[in-house]
């Protein structure tokens, strides 16, 4: 009877390594799957949550609005011109929103600057430039250019080069280049932009873009219009959540965000 080969009865020396590799792969797969499950397209999972806004808070900081003042739905957007997700929202979602909801008088859209700073060094000057364009009634056109061309200016190392881009965009949208340049190179609207950011902080805006629909925060900003539309329809059909009648501390809650300070708003 032949003796069995000694090596065939032994465990493979690679087995422990395979076990470790399998465990690491499993752990990694679980962590990645958890990230995948965080991204949901279920509109209910992304339903707005109430935030109590007093009229004083609402009127304290003027945003830049487009749409009918008496529209049944008001959206507040807190955004940073240099943030890539904001650019995605501005270029992918907003054009359809304008066409279907804002131009039909169903939605009023109010833009609030929320310059993040840090990794986005030009976010504050971009926000101020937006206000400078607004001064000439060209905010939304300028907004579209700045977001649409974000990758052209966002990675510049020099502030003067960034301003040059903004000057070109302002000129393209029909603003007076000289006036715009004077405004951008000054510290004009620094107060307003800072106030806008502080307003966002008051509302516990942590990142951008953040949306509030009729005063209720949208937990995860939709990346496509078809994700936003159900939320708007809930409000339009009266199915949206109602704000409590009294805000904590006895202050009245806003029934729906009103148009902030008309003097500083731009209509499209």
């Amino acid at each position: 009877m032949p003796a069995p080969a000694p090596s065939s009865s032994r465990r493979s020396p690679l087995l422990p390594l395979y076990v470790v590799l399998a465990l690491v792969a499993l752990l990694g797969a679980v962590l990645i799957a958890r990230q995948l499950s965080r991204k949901t397209t279920d509109p209910k999972a992304n339903a707005p949550v109430p935030v109590n806004l007093t009229p004083q808070q609402l009127n304290s900081t003027p945003g830049i609005a487009q749409g009918q003042p008496n529209a049944p739905v008001t959206i507040f957007e807190f955004a940073d011109f240099q943030c890539p997700h904001c650019a995605q929202f501005a270029t992918m979602v907003e054009p359809v929103l304008r066409e279907r909801m804002i131009s039909t008088g169903k939605v009023r859209f109010v833009f609030y600057e929320f310059p993040l700073g840090g990794a986005f060094p030009w976010s504050f000057i971009a926000a101020r430039a937006g206000r400078c364009a607004n001064e000439q009634g060209k905010f939304w056109e300028f907004h579209d250019w700045v977001f649409g061309k974000q990758s052209d200016w966002s990675y510049e190392a020099d502030q003067d080069k960034v301003i040059e881009h903004f000057l070109d965009y302002a000129q393209q949208v029909g603003a007076d280049r000289g006036k715009f340049e004077t405004c951008v190179r000054s510290s004009k609207y620094a107060q307003e932009v800072s106030q806008s950011r502080a307003f966002g902080e008051l509302l516990q805006v942590g990142g951008t873009p953040t949306l509030f629909i009729n005063g209720k925060r949208v937990p995860q900003t939709p990346e496509a219009y078809n994700q936003l539309e159900p939320l708007l329809n809930m409000e339009l059909t009266g199915g949206g959540m109602r704000l409590p009648s009294q805000a904590p501390g006895g202050g009245p809650a806003a029934p729906a965000p009103a148009a902030p300070a008309p003097a500083d708003t731009a209509k499209r």
């Binding site: 995948l36 991204k39 890539p84 997700h85 840090g118 990794a119 990142g207 995860q220 990346e223």
Partner: peptide
């Protein structure tokens, strides 16, 4: 590919 939301990064620099 747009299959995960925000990156777990904390600073916004990863997205940038």
């Amino acid at each position: 590919l747009g299959l995960v939301g925000d990156l777990v990064c904390g600073t916004g620099a990863c997205e940038r």
